[in-house]
Amino acid sequence: MKDFDASGARRLETAADTQAFGEEVGHALEAGDVVILDGPLGAGKTTFTQGLARGLGVKGRVTSPTFVIAREHRSLDGGPALIHVDAYRLLGEGGGDPLGELDALDLDSALTDAVVVAEWGGGLVEQISSSYLLITLDRTTATLEDPESEARLASWELH
């Protein structure tokens, strides 16, 4: 990652703010980078990834990879592809070798030539990369304060 703080936190008031933060992160990513998204269902992981895809400049509509396990989005401008993974499903499908399972998906890009974003990625990245950016999205805290709030609390740390 280039030009991005190794750790921090930010309050994102709307889905558009979540996408804008994702776009900012996307601009800082390089081929071979791995991003793990943590947070409960509905926390904004896919919304964040939509912005990240804009920042990377990849083509294709970004949707949850739940039913396909992984989706590849090619670059529009010669940059790295985006491989968007549902690690929960990936870990459950193969039983023990997430890297082997990811390779078996026949993605056109080598993992070193792409940015990998894994929703529910804890337990996967430790096996596919020696370093990764962990982003946690928390929607619960803001809605406890104000049930009408759309806010998410995003925190991140480079490992």
Rank of each mutant, 00 (worst) to 15 (best):
Q127F: 14
S7H: 10
G26C: 13
G57E: 07
R74W: 11
E148Y: 08
T18K: 01
A104R: 06
L137H: 01
V117P: 04
V62L: 08
S155W: 12
E150I: 08
T66K: 04
D17F: 03
A114Q: 11
D146H: 13
A110R: 12
G60V: 03
T136E: 12
D138N: 01
L52G: 02
S131K: 15
V62K: 14
D146N: 13
I135V: 14
G100V: 04
G39M: 00
S75H: 07
L111I: 07
T112F: 11
G96W: 02
G94P: 04
R139I: 02
T140M: 03
D108V: 15
A70Q: 06
E72P: 07
W120R: 05
D3P: 02
A20S: 06
A154N: 10
L91C: 07
L158T: 13
L105I: 03
A110G: 13
G51T: 14
V116C: 15
A6I: 09
S155M: 13
D17K: 08
K59C: 09
A20H: 08
W156D: 02
D3K: 03
D106F: 12
L133W: 13
G44S: 04
D38P: 02
G78P: 15
A43T: 04
Y132A: 11
I36R: 00
G79Q: 14
E150C: 09
A81C: 08
L99I: 05
G78R: 15
A104K: 02
G39D: 00
L82I: 14
K45Q: 04
G79K: 15
T140E: 07
V125K: 05
D97W: 02
G60C: 08
A110V: 06
L41M: 12
A9C: 02
G32M: 13
A6N: 08
V68Q: 04
S7F: 12
I135C: 05
Q50P: 00
A6P: 10
A104H: 05
E30P: 03
D138G: 00
L105F: 03
P98L: 10
T136N: 01
D138P: 00
A43F: 08
T140L: 06
G22F: 14
L56T: 14
Y132D: 06
D97C: 06
V125E: 09
L124Q: 04
L91H: 06
A151M: 09
